[in-house]
């Protein structure tokens, strides 16, 4: 075993240089877009007609639903988006009564929130999920390997999977109608169909202002909170409501983007591969010393390797 310091640094240097070049490659979409598109869902306007589900199904070419979209009994149970439906509307009875003592329903549309700093995009091993300038958290099936780490990472439990496709399963989630909104004047299918404009489409900054105006102008109608303004670092889809979000099945998430800790640790330890290089040098030093000592002591054993 011959180990010279020079030989060692040659190899370490080569590895390091390779790593440094890699680092300068496009590092995904780390910085959130300045003014992406978004949608503001006004839960006080939603009438639970499920037209958004129907439009979503149509524009995304999803398989026909088991129960027709006109069937209101579907609302009797709480549903989640899945690989066959990117958005679903659930009905809650938070406890308000109307004039005739009937419980007043609140309808909640669920879909991908299109986070400003998406955990799924941070997690994705191949960068198949990326945050686009227009706000979309976009899925590129041609890169996907199907590890489902995005599903582990998503704080909103949104991405679904085609578990019954043996060879080419896809991660399925709301696309924010990427193709449609990329065109001038294009709208997401759901926002276009919504009969009451419960979904307002626009630039995120504009929508925040709209939401704040609505809350300010109708303090009796809304609670003073925009879900999605700060949650997990902000989301492109935001909600305003008459009742606290906790009563409507909204998930309590921190304001910090959830992948932050993992990313920080990862980047601190491995930017420019400094820690592996240092460790390699350290181990090389130990190995060199131990073998030198050994060679001096006894020759036969040292030559064996």
């Amino acid at each position: 075993m011959k180990l010279t310091r020079r030989g060692f640094f040659k190899i370490a240097g080569a590895t390091g240089a390779a790593a440094a070049t890699n680092r300068s490659a496009p590092a995904g979409a780390s910085a959130p877009p300045d003014d992406p598109y978004g949608c503001l869902v006004d839960l006080t306007r939603c009438i639970g007609c499920r037209k958004c589900e129907e439009a979503c199904n149509r524009v995304n070419g999803l398989p026909p639903p088991e129960e027709p979209f006109e069937d209101p009994t579907v609302l009797n149970r709480l549903r989640r988006p899945d690989e066959k439906a990117f958005t679903v509307v659930n009905r809650y009875f938070p406890g308000q009564l109307d004039a005739s003592n009937q419980l007043v329903p609140t309808f909640v549309k669920i879909q991908c929130m299109h986070c400003q700093e998406p955990a799924c995009a941070s997690a994705c091993i191949v960068g198949a999920l990326t945050k686009k300038e227009n706000g979309t958290v976009h899925y590129d099936v041609t890169k996907c390997i199907g590890c489902r780490y995005c599903m582990v990472a998503c704080p909103f439990e949104i991405p679904a999977y085609e578990y019954h496709d043996p060879i080419t399963p896809r991660v399925m989630k709301c696309t924010f109608c990427f193709e449609r909104i990329s065109k001038e004047g294009g709208l997401p299918g759901c926002a276009e169909i919504c009969p009451t404009e419960a979904i307002t489409f626009g630039r995120r900054q504009t929508l925040l202002k709209v939401a704040k105006d609505r809350i300010r102008d109708n303090p009796a109608r809304y609670i003073d909170r925009i879900y999605g303004e700060k949650e997990v670092g902000g989301t492109s889809w935001m909600y305003i409501s008459a009742v606290p979000f906790e009563k409507l099945g909204f998930i309590d998430v921190p304001n910090e983007p959830t992948p932050k800790l993992a990313e920080t640790i990862q980047h601190t330890l491995f930017s420019y591969l400094w820690s592996p290089i240092v460790l390699y040098g350290l181990l090389g030093g130990i190995m060199w010393t131990s073998h030198k000592n050994r060679a001096e002591d006894e020759d036969e054993e040292g030559d064996r390797r």
């Binding site: 306007r45 709208l187 926002a191 276009e192 919504c194 009969p195 009451t196 404009e197 307002t200 489409f201 626009g202 504009t206 929508l207 202002k209 709209v210 105006d213 609505r214």
Partner: peptide
């Protein structure tokens, strides 16, 4: 039109 840039909170005709 819905979602006019100049009047973001003016309801569209359908709504």
């Amino acid at each position: 039109e819905s979602f006019r840039g100049d009047h973001p909170d003016r309801l569209g005709l359908k709504a």
